[in-house]
Design a binder for these strands. Structure first.
Lengths: 250, 250
DNA sequence: TATTAATTTTGATTCAGATCAATCAAAACA
DNA sequence: TGTTTTGATTGATCTGAATCAAAATTAATA
């Protein structure tokens, strides 16, 4: 169940910076395979840009759904709140990714989206997106692929949570981050985590102490070097071994 | 994070049997809020019906994606295979639900779909669905909602796998089944499981012995009565208590 | 119907990860 | 700059679920 190819499309362009005064559509996830006219049409829709400070909310659970958000820069987490106040992280999101897909079903956001560093997003009014996707079939197709990819990704996480042990989970998580950084033009072996151990734990279904121990263990084996939030992958092959059988988490 | 409303739309009609010789579109999940002409158009697309025997495959992992499948009757599981041969169940599916959404992203099925009892599905060629959804906006909107609902559902499972203990998981699972039966016109408190303890365990991230013990425990407390695959819920309120805080798994 | 195979239950034991607790390091702030 | 707060690491202990094992049921098949 390896899914390398699907990411290619929208990620290959995610590091290209255009000088366009508007939202720099070309670097977004959506306008894949569109001609200039079509991009123009799309551009009229997603012109609204928005900045969120570290710690700020892009949207709250329960808020009325109007728009999807395409991340232009930064790093966010999504999480659902339980009654007792604790939160479960459902995902970490970076440049080029689309947020808010879960809200389409009920016209209400089903999770909080919180910036883990200063971030910038483009607002995409969903009604308009549907409208123009009727005119531009390739846009519709691409949008459907993105929704579907989200489902596949979630199945990967379910596999991880349902059948992997702590160290395998962390290895999978690190390799996933690594690949996403690589594809955006950053180092695949040297990066800074934006989230805390607790947030990693919440995402991976582990307690923060267990996450910390797993980090230490991988370091003891010289597979990675950990300096607080800074991670260096010394032996990516051995890290892949740690992941075990599965190739989940696209 | 309660999501009762979204299910309403397509499920309210799921128990209605029309005598139409074709695929009985009206009872499917898609034609919500369409007029007769529109249903006619849609009908031309989904006319192909298919039966799958118990144990048979609707599709295999890696197979080329052509169509979505709407379940007309029966019960199926979807599961992903790991290298080592074991399988993780990603979902159980019943009448009115749509299968194959994960395959859109790569044009390849990412899981196996296997019938747990004799089942009948309608094949919906995806290219055609996209085509006519350009003509019928309400169909497109509904399709998007269904994809989105799948994402929300998966987040619910992630929450379950990431933060609940065995008994809570089983309670959540039973209540979920219960509600889905109810909505289809069957008893909410008296039903037969179609899957084995092992399949339940795989879905819930537990070993089959743990599932069995959790059943026994709930029975000891007089909350349910278990007779092999037959389940009777004696005290749904207390079962809900067992679920704990969260309302996940829509 | 007899026989075999698959599934389920229950018990005993082990172990991975949670929990409790203390220390240490790094931000954030006055 | 010192102080407070937040986050990370590490150790000791406990516990829920996995594992190992056997018996009991149920379903499938000759």
């Amino acid at each position: 169940m390896l899914h390398n190819t699907p990411l290619r499309n929208h990620l290959d362009i995610s590091h290209i910076r255009s000088s366009c005064a508007t939202c720099s559509l070309r670097e977004l996830c959506l306008p894949v395979g569109l001609n200039d006219d079509e991009i123009q049409v799309l551009g009229d829709v997603v012109s609204h840009k928005r900045k969120i400070q570290r710690g700020g909310y892009l949207h709250h659970t329960g808020a009325k759904f109007q728009s999807l958000f395409a991340i232009r820069s930064g790093f966010l987490k999504t999480c659902v709140l339980e009654q007792d106040g604790r939160q479960q992280v459902t995902g970490f999101h970076m440049t080029g990714e689309l947020l808010g897909l879960d809200a389409i079903s009920t016209d209400t956001h089903t999770c909080d989206a919180i910036a883990l560093e200063d971030s910038e997003v483009c607002e995409i009014p969903f009604a308009k997106l549907e409208e123009i996707s009727r005119i531009i079939p390739s846009l519709m197709r691409h949008f459907h692929k993105m929704m579907s990819r989200e489902i596949v990704r979630d199945h990967g996480v379910m596999l991880l949570l349902g059948s992997m042990k702590a160290e395998e989970r962390l290895a999978t998580f690190l390799l996933n981050l690594s690949r996403r950084f690589l594809v955006r033009g950053y180092s695949e072996s040297d990066f800074n985590l934006r989230m805390t151990r607790e947030e990693i734990g919440s995402y991976l279904g582990l307690k923060l102490e267990t996450v910390s121990r797993a980090f230490s263990k991988l370091q003891d084996e010289d597979i990675i070097t950990v300096d607080n939030k800074h991670i260096r992958i010394n032996d990516i092959a051995r890290l892949r071994m740690k992941m075990g059988n599965s190739s989940c988490i696209t």
